[in-house]
Write a protein that binds this DNA or RNA. Sequence first.
DNA 1: CAACTTTTTTCCGAATTGGACCAAAACGGC
DNA 2: GCCGTTTTGGTCCAATTCGGAAAAAAGTTG
Lengths: 226, 226
Amino acid sequence: MPDESTLHNEQPARKQQQRSLVTQQKLLDAAVEAFSENGFKGTSTRDIAERAGVHHPLITYHFKNKDQLWRAAADYIFGAFTNSLASALEEYKDQCPKQRMSALIHAYVNYAKNQPALHKVMVQEASYPNPRLEWLIDKHLKPIFTATFGMLEKLQELGVAVPGDPALLFNMIRLSSGGLLALGNELKASSGIDINDPETLSEISEMIVRVFLPGDMPVSVAESIN
Amino acid sequence: MPDESTLHNEQPARKQQQRSLVTQQKLLDAAVEAFSENGFKGTSTRDIAERAGVHHPLITYHFKNKDQLWRAAADYIFGAFTNSLASALEEYKDQCPKQRMSALIHAYVNYAKNQPALHKVMVQEASYPNPRLEWLIDKHLKPIFTATFGMLEKLQELGVAVPGDPALLFNMIRLSSGGLLALGNELKASSGIDINDPETLSEISEMIVRVFLPGDMPVSVAESIN
DNA sequence: CAACTTTTTTCCGAATTGGACCAAAACGGC
DNA sequence: GCCGTTTTGGTCCAATTCGGAAAAAAGTTG
């Protein structure tokens, strides 16, 4: 019987063992990989367990069922992603708005490189309306959207970001970043783009900035910030 | 036993019946929908037959097996897509390069609106290396890429398209077009973007042009073309 | 050592899988 | 209208896979 304390934050009668944490992490990594490749319906819990090198009933033990495992996996990748964005913002908090947005884009591209599942899972779930999609939007997507939306509007006012619906702008940046990395397996063969080359990676980031944030920061504003 | 003439171009002993074509089309539409939602592995032939309102053994009859059905479905959507691009080029063949590329982008966005499977299937198959992906790239993607690549290089020389690796440029345009429409189910809830609104659709096309082709055509060139 | 956590092993019943087979029906060419 | 072909409906299959339950065994902690 799975201990509720594993899933929630209730008081454990005894502290969780190390191997248990390792197993959970292996299952999460395997789940992210499998779900991103074959979608929720196309993935079996046995497949996940096999990728993790673990007996499949452990999924029931640690995550209750397939749905909960999916949610834990989504929390895992989107949580780390949000943290990555947040620390990029923190690191550049004293810089001008354009540099801060640029830092966000770089963080996005770099995260998507190591975790292309981020975008794949979104496309998978957005394929048709379903409860997981709603959950994903409310819990993970909206916060990122609202946090970034204002920054983009500001950059448009400053003449740095291209004009147009900021919501569209947000999603185009998002697709150019996450989408490119999610198509990694295809780009090499179809376009000769090797996303495993670090130079290609920074070229992508810089091109996105150049395309979507083509303007220079007004001198007055740039100085008033510093 | 399926007649080979259905799949290849051999001489039919008798002309194909109308209802047969209807059944094939229903199966193709259903296959596109199902494969785009759940991927190749996640889709069962029975699911496809059910969506098509057709008895499932007819898949074996018309398309031999699941794999051939997938290829026929891919041919169907990518063939129509290529035709759509080609006729856009034909219609604007006397216009300047920027207008021709702009016409391509509009055609892309409009096609992706009606057939979001175009992008979904690509992401699905690009999730991991597999024979279908290679087939898709060689048969459908590369021709589009090579046909467009030269146009983009030319536009960059003219200072119309943004500088940078033209291959990256191509794929960013592609992702901004097809990707946005593929995420339709999500965009409304996460960003308030309604891709079913015709105005939104043209706004997307125009914004892509504005972002990726920001320059004006040099007057000399524009006149020498007309 | 004793209590608890985690893993292993085994099993289940149900559902689904892709595909084969054949008789009936619809159809096209004559 | 008739005949042979094409297409469809209905049935069946053997195999696999599905998510999950249960209990015993092993490992860990205090």
